[in-house]
Simulated assay, not measured.
Amino acid sequence: MHHPTHNPWKITDENPVYDNAWINITEYQVLNPSGNPGIYGKVHFKNRAIGVFPLDDEMNTYLVGQYRFTINQYSWEMPEGGGPLDEAPLDAAKRELLEETGLKAKYWTELQRIHLSNSVTDELGIVYLARGLEQFEAEPEETEQLIVNKVPFNQVYRMVCNNEITDSLTVAAVLRIQLLILENRLP
């Protein structure tokens, strides 16, 4: 018997299907864990997903609202974006926070690393908590039409619980922060 961490999948062939500046898609011919032939599609991301949860001394955060093309709906979420794989994740987080909100933070804590859809993609998300906030001018990208709202954390937590916020990185960050608050371990 194989150890549970041993890869039981065998790739017999691979076919690149699509490639652009952000992703590539490959279809694999495989032998699955039971030894039977099958196919598996994988979306490879060329960036990391970077999320920043800014939290001020009064326990307010800054939500970013924007229309998300892929889900065809408006979304409220923490500041987030893509960080190139050759860029330090913290540098990408600092850039995203400034771009989307105009905020800079003195204190940074990595909250978590999360695989966003490990059934079809290798996308890794890294979430930071940003404290000691200072306001500057936002620098949004040309593809971003953003609204930034300062919202009390307890209201954001209720929004997550009521499914008003569905962005996975934001949901994970809010739940992690709520746990840290309850355990009196918030940095």
Rank of each mutant, 00 (worst) to 15 (best):
I147L: 13
L63C: 07
D56R: 00
Q66R: 11
P16E: 12
V30R: 04
L169F: 13
N163Y: 09
T121D: 11
I11G: 10
W108P: 00
W9V: 08
A172N: 08
N20G: 03
L103C: 10
F53Q: 05
G41L: 07
E14S: 13
H44G: 06
N72H: 15
I181H: 07
N184M: 13
E99Q: 11
H2F: 15
E142W: 15
V43H: 09
A130K: 03
L175N: 09
A172L: 05
M59V: 00
S168Y: 06
K106P: 08
G125V: 04
H6P: 05
E164M: 08
L85Q: 13
E100Y: 09
N24E: 13
V160D: 15
P140Y: 09
Y107F: 08
S34N: 12
A49E: 02
P33Q: 09
N163P: 01
Y128I: 02
L97G: 05
G38C: 00
E144Y: 10
I23Y: 12
L186P: 04
E58L: 01
F153Q: 02
A21W: 10
R131L: 01
N47E: 14
L124K: 01
F153R: 00
E110G: 01
R176W: 14
S34C: 03
P54Q: 02
A21Q: 14
N184A: 15
A138S: 15
E137D: 12
V30S: 04
P84M: 09
P89L: 02
L90R: 06
R95K: 12
R176Q: 14
Q155A: 10
D13L: 01
E123C: 03
L129M: 05
N72R: 15
I114Q: 15
I71R: 12
N60A: 00
I23R: 06
N118W: 01
G35P: 02
L85P: 11
E139K: 14
G125A: 13
P140W: 03
V17T: 07
G81P: 07
H2G: 04
G83M: 02
P84S: 10
A138T: 01
W108R: 04
S75D: 07
Q135E: 14
E164Y: 06
M1W: 13
T61N: 08
E137G: 03
F136H: 15
Y128S: 03
G81I: 03
F69G: 01
H2C: 11
M159E: 08
N47D: 14
N7G: 11
L129R: 05
L146H: 10
P37T: 08
W9S: 00
I181N: 10
P8S: 07
A138L: 12
V151L: 00
I181Y: 13
S34P: 05
P79H: 08
I39P: 00
I25C: 06
V17M: 12
K106W: 14
K104V: 11
E139N: 12
M1P: 15
E100I: 05
D57K: 07
L124G: 02
H44I: 01
